[in-house]
């Protein structure tokens, strides 16, 4: 990652949850740098804090303490909690998200689902992105179908297209293959890999499947809230 621009940088990032009377140290003093164009996979057992870390990286949540900078701009760390409105503004500039459950709107067609982000926010030059992405992901023949009429693999491709339509700098994928069989999982990771290589998209992918994690060019393992860099 030498010479590359840093996309995400954290310093002592910590998240403590209160569960009943118990304090859970979910992310513990994590400091890491993710360069632009990196494909990073985060693995680790359940409860290791990998989802919490991704949520902090993706500005879905405020950290308890620590710093986070996106593209050199400090987001967390001034001690101030950001409001939901401020977080949304940051998120839509930088991130695209995909999840284990695809969360497509069942009443909208594939194309409408992909277009939906543009209803709320629109970067310039994104008019034709939806159809281009559907073509790129090989599901343009499904554009007028409702989500209920297509397969799980296709649904995740739609979710990817939706996450990509506003040209994010970083794609955060939290267990993107958790609901898919092996063959389709491999396909989806392959799609992500292609996006990383051809478009230079920065990807952070959480998975519990070491096989898939190895497809990334960087692997991070989480254990008890701490990260260890692994050899890809």
């Amino acid at each position: 990652m030498n010479g590359k621009t840093v996309a995400i940088e954290t310093q002592g990032l910590t998240k403590i949850y209160t569960r009943g009377i118990e304090q859970v140290l979910s992310v513990n003093e994590v400091s890491l740098k993710i360069a632009q164009g990196d494909f990073v996979s985060v693995i680790g057992p359940s409860g290791s804090g990998k989802t919490t870390l991704t949520n902090l990286l993706g500005c879905l949540d405020n950290p308890t303490r620590g710093e986070l900078a996106l593209g050199g701009r400090q987001i967390f760390g001034s001690g101030k909690r950001l409001s939901e409105r401020e977080l949304t503004r940051i998120r839509r500039e930088t991130f695209g998200y995909i999840f284990q459950n695809f969360y497509l709107i069942p009443t909208l067609t594939v194309l409408e689902n992909v277009l939906l982000p543009l209803t709320f926010y629109r970067k310039p030059g994104t008019e034709s992105e939806a159809l281009r992405l559907l073509g790129l992901l090989g599901i343009d023949h499904r554009k007028d179908h409702l989500p209920g009429e297509i397969s799980g693999g296709e649904m995740q491709r739609v979710a990817i297209a939706r996450a990509m339509v506003n040209r994010p700098e970083v794609l955060l994928a939290d267990e993107p293959t958790g609901n898919l069989d092996t063959k389709r999982s491999t396909e989806i990771v392959q799609v992500l890999k292609e996006l990383n290589q051809t478009a230079g998209l920065t990807i952070v992918m959480v998975t519990h499947n070491p096989e898939l994690a190895r497809q990334a060019n960087r692997m991070i393992e989480m254990r008890d809230g701490r990260v260890t860099e692994m050899q890809a």
Binding site: L60, E84, R85, T88, R89, R91, R92, F95, Y97, F99, N101, Y103, I105, L116, P117, T119, F120, Y121, R162, A163, N166
Partner: peptide, 16 residues
Amino acid sequence: FQEIGILKTIGAMPGD
């Protein structure tokens, strides 16, 4: 609930 929450990850402001 989840569907609406997800709208926030695709750029919807509370006002939207």
